[in-house]
Amino acid sequence: MYEPIRTKSVHSTMAGTSDFPHRTREEELDIQLASHLAALLAVTDDLHAQAPSTDLDAAAERLARQVARLRGGRPPARATTTGPTRAAALHRRAHALAGRALVVAASRADTAAAILAAERMDAHAAALATDTSATGTLAATA
């Protein structure tokens, strides 16, 4: 009834017998943090396309530098805008991405990335608060 396994297991646990490369925890965290920051950069570029500002320019440059640092000097791909999207939705998305980046940066003790992510969270939270108060005022007068 039992047929013995005749091929080498793909789940080998013995040290040195694996045929696929492994990454360290630090390398995995670097990849994850670079991905979150690159996504935040894309949303920042979308926001900048809708309403250009020097704050968004500076944030985009800082994000691009951090992504390049985490990717071994390779600059991130900069996409064109994805189309018309409400600014509030973009700010909510950016706030969430910055929060994820902050968690990963704190996990890997990357102070520069953590500070940048926290600053971006604050900026997007402030933009959301301003947007909410402006729409609340408009709704009250309507």
Rank of each mutant, 00 (worst) to 15 (best):
M1I: 13
Y2D: 12
E3N: 09
R6K: 09
R6E: 08
R6F: 06
R6P: 00
K8Y: 14
S9E: 14
S9F: 12
S9I: 12
V10K: 15
S12I: 15
T13I: 14
M14K: 14
A15R: 12
G16T: 13
D19H: 14
D19A: 15
F20G: 09
F20H: 11
P21Y: 12
H22A: 15
H22F: 13
R23N: 14
R23E: 13
T24G: 08
E26T: 05
E28Q: 14
L29A: 04
I31G: 06
Q32P: 03
L33S: 03
L33I: 01
S35G: 11
L37R: 00
A38H: 03
L40H: 00
L41I: 00
A42W: 05
T44Q: 02
T44L: 04
T44N: 02
T44Y: 04
D45C: 08
L47Q: 08
L47A: 03
H48V: 05
Q50W: 09
A51S: 11
P52G: 13
D55H: 09
D55R: 06
L56M: 04
D57R: 07
A58D: 08
A59E: 04
A59N: 02
E61Y: 05
R62C: 02
L63A: 01
L63C: 00
A64R: 01
R65F: 09
R65G: 01
L70V: 00
R71C: 02
G72N: 01
P75W: 09
P76R: 02
P76Q: 03
P76Y: 05
T82F: 08
G83T: 08
G83D: 03
P84H: 15
R86S: 13
A87K: 06
A87T: 10
A87G: 08
A88N: 09
L90H: 07
L90T: 03
H91N: 10
H91M: 10
R93Y: 11
R93Q: 15
R93S: 13
H95E: 14
A96H: 10
A98H: 00
G99A: 04
A101C: 01
A101R: 03
V104W: 04
A105Y: 02
A106M: 12
A106K: 13
R108I: 09
A109N: 10
T111E: 15
A112S: 11
A113D: 00
I115T: 09
I115G: 03
L116Q: 01
L116D: 00
A117I: 01
A118R: 03
A118Q: 04
M121N: 02
M121D: 03
D122E: 12
D122C: 09
D122V: 11
D122T: 14
A123D: 03
H124E: 06
A126Y: 09
L128H: 05
L128T: 06
A129L: 10
A129W: 06
D131T: 10
T132W: 11
S133W: 10
A134F: 12
A134C: 06
G136S: 14
G136C: 14
T137S: 13
L138M: 12
T141Q: 13
